[in-house]
Amino acid sequence: MRARVFVTLKPSVFDPQGTTVAEALHTLGYDSVSDVRQGKYFELEIAAATADEAKRIAGEVSGKLLANPVIESYRIEIADQKA
């Protein structure tokens, strides 16, 4: 089972890298891009019988290691390999 984990800074946390990327896009003329938030993306291969089980494990490792709950939040997607 493959899990995708998206880790992003919480909305309340300033993202200096995202802001700089947004400024660079404005320099390129993309004024329509009003904001950029930079984050991290993980793909996990998990030996689990069900999608719920995979999601539970992905949630555990995200809370323990992949994200720092002080500054970051995460979102998990389970991709069924048969699909």
């Binding site: 800074l9 946390v13 300033f14 200096p16 890298q17 700089t20 720092n68 002080v70 500054i71």
Partner: peptide, 17 residues
Amino acid sequence: LLESGLLPGAMLRNRSL
């Protein structure tokens, strides 16, 4: 120490980048 929870809080990239 911050990551291990012995002290509270976290570090972000310097605002100057």
